[in-house]
């Protein structure tokens, strides 16, 4: 039966290539978790730069980083606050486990966005006129939303899997989902403005 699983099980024999090192492997060193976050951020920045390919200008690099900011900000600011709350309620999820989950979330978003970079550049360069630019911007917004939701799903699933069986109750789920909700709000606040700026306000 083909269905959308909230938390997918990894493939039995995962490929040990770049995408596996970036996303699927769970048992990683904290230093690699940091590398995952930075690589995911770099990929998201590349997507932002691709979204600005129709209106190239040096000052748009800042707007390109605006597209990539929500996953990084989520990883750096929201996950420590989740760790504090989970520890406060004694839910048994360690700081490293949350850091690993955050790294996997950011790198998942980054991998999806990296795959969309060539396609985004193509749409930006081939869509002529203000209406074409609006269409390209709408597609980019959909892409970022989808990639962001996949990243949040990876993060939430990893944190919930890390919680000990006896203590993974409704309150843990509520805290994790609440943090993800804040991540969605952060993205909704930053990304549309950044995409609008990358298109020169459709002028």
């Amino acid at each position: 039966m083909e269905s959308f699983e909230p938390c997918p099980h990894p493939t039995p024999a995962p490929d040990d290539g770049f995408s596996s090192r970036m996303v699927t492997r769970r048992d990683i060193h904290p230093a690699r978790a940091l590398l995952r976050i930075l690589t995911g951020f770099a990929f998201a920045c590349a997507f932002g730069a691709a979204a600005g390919a129709g209106h190239p200008a040096p000052e748009r690099l800042v707007d390109a980083m605006g597209v990539a900011a929500p996953p990084l900000a989520f990883g750096l600011f929201f996950t420590p606050s989740l760790w504090v709350l989970l520890t406060l309620f004694d839910r048994g999820v360690g700081a490293f486990e949350i850091a690993r989950a955050a790294a996997r979330g950011v790198s998942t978003t980054g991998m999806v966005l990296a795959g969309l970079v060539p396609l985004t550049v193509f749409f930006e360069l081939s869509a002529g006129g203000p209406d074409g630019q609006r269409f390209a911007a709408a597609l980019e917004l959909c892409a970022v939303t989808f990639a962001g939701l996949l990243g949040l799903r990876a993060f939430a699933c990893d944190v919930l899997e890390a919680a000990p069986a006896g203590r993974a109750g409704a309150s843990t789920t509520a805290l994790v989902l609440g943090t993800c909700g804040l991540g969605v709000l952060l993205g909704a606040h930053l990304v549309p403005g950044a995409i609008l700026a990358l298109h020169g306000g459709f002028r």
């Binding site: 997918p8 493939t11 996303v23 699927t24 795959g115 969309l116 060539p118």
Partner: peptide
């Protein structure tokens, strides 16, 4: 094809079924 293959590759990793490019 050239534009879709990177999309497939990135999405497969995100869906936890990575394969070589």
């Amino acid at each position: 094809l050239a534009l879709s293959v990177p999309v497939l590759h990135g999405a497969r990793a995100a869906f936890e079924r990575p394969e070589p490019f």
